[in-house]
Design a protein around this nucleic acid. Structure first.
Length: 210
DNA sequence: ACATTAAGTGATT
DNA sequence: AATCACTTAATGT
């Protein structure tokens, strides 16, 4: 396995930093569904996503989940940056949405490189900025969109991440991600099917109007 | 053939 | 939009 780190990141960093990243970083392959970061865990590595996608969730005291957003190749986890600065524990949960390849950077390096490499500093600030935007978008989605619109957005996000109009998931799983009940998801999906937006099959949803 | 799991539906709040 | 209670459909053993 030799995923191409350069493909995604080479243009961002200067030579010296690139070689530092490659000497200190460790490739890690995580299968679909594996948890990367749990709530309350302390973070020791900052993951750079080489390929695949990760689902970022918030969870309440009952263990009920809510998907905030997905991150993809070229992205990093803003939570690790926050942890590094504030020495705090993770407030979110990260689960591999598909098989994902990561380059793990020890957190101490984040601070070190901030001082030595200008390109690193802008990369960190840029990622932080992007995450902030995503978070605002997530808030808008939850606060202002109806359930049916949220569902459709969720399906489209999933389709984009999987690079396929076919989504493999049960209604129950979708309901958990959106923090609603299975019955509601089933009904809304049915409505979308009638509107010719999707096609339903067991464990599978096909987006039609892309 | 039977058990299990996924999905559909009416009624109620 | 959530919950209950029940039915129907698909799939695994």
């Amino acid at each position: 396995m030799q995923p191409d780190f350069n493909f995604n990141y080479a243009h961002l960093f200067e030579e010296e930093l690139l070689s530092e990243i490659l000497t200190v970083g460790e490739y890690k392959k995580v299968p679909e569904g594996q948890e990367l970061i749990d709530i309350g865990s302390s973070i020791k590595f900052m993951p750079l996503i080489i390929s695949g996608a990760i689902k970022i969730l918030r969870e309440d005291e009952n263990g009920d989940e809510l998907v905030l957003y997905f991150i993809e190749q070229g992205d990093t986890c803003a939570m690790t940056i926050t942890c590094c600065i504030g020495q705090s524990k993770s407030k979110i949960r990260a689960v591999a949405e598909v098989e994902t390849i990561l380059l793990m950077i020890p957190v101490q390096k984040i601070g070190e490189w901030m001082n030595t490499y200008q390109s690193w500093q802008s990369f960190i600030l840029q990622s932080y900025h992007e995450r902030m935007q995503e978070l605002l978008e997530a808030i808008d989605t939850i606060a202002f969109l109806n359930m049916d619109e949220r569902l459709l957005k969720y399906l489209k996000d999933k389709a984009m991440i999987n690079r396929s109009e076919v989504i493999h998931a049960t209604h129950k799983e979708i309901a958990n991600d959106l923090h609603t009940s299975r019955v509601v998801v089933s009904r809304l999906l049915k409505a979308l099917e009638i509107k010719q937006e999707i096609q339903l099959n067991r464990n599978q949803i096909t987006l039609l109007n892309l």
